[in-house]
């Protein structure tokens, strides 16, 4: 698979490591809400079809990327920097 890195262009997926569902960006406060933290840590939607997921460009510029990919065909539909996604969700740093 080739991942369209937002800064570096098409890069081999081998340069990346995979974390999982992009919902992992939104980590709840585990002390305030243990049940929500359990769901965050252990439960996944795991859809057959369009999936937004976190990839880390470990052997490249070491940025986190949110890749939109079809899990049935492996077709990659887009990629954005994870920091842009996080900022759009109100995270400042």
């Amino acid at each position: 698979m080739l991942i369209p890195h937002p800064i570096l262009g098409l890069r081999d997926a081998q340069e990346f490591t995979y974390l999982g569902d992009a919902a992992l960006i939104d980590r709840p406060d585990g002390l305030a809400n243990p049940e929500a933290f359990h769901d965050y840590l252990y439960l996944r939607d795991n859809p057959a079809g369009i999936h937004r997921e976190l990839w880390f460009h470990e052997q490249g510029d070491r940025s986190w990327i949110v890749v939109t990919r079809n899990t049935v065909t492996h077709e990659i539909l887009g990629a954005v920097l994870a920091q842009d996604v996080a900022r759009a969700r109100g995270r400042s740093r």
Binding site: G20, D39, Y42, L43, R44, D45, N46, P47, A48, T71
Partner: peptide
Amino acid sequence: GNSSTVMAMAGLRLPIES
């Protein structure tokens, strides 16, 4: 393999990735 999609029809989320 397809546990998540089948169990989603019963409203359940699983600690599983395919």
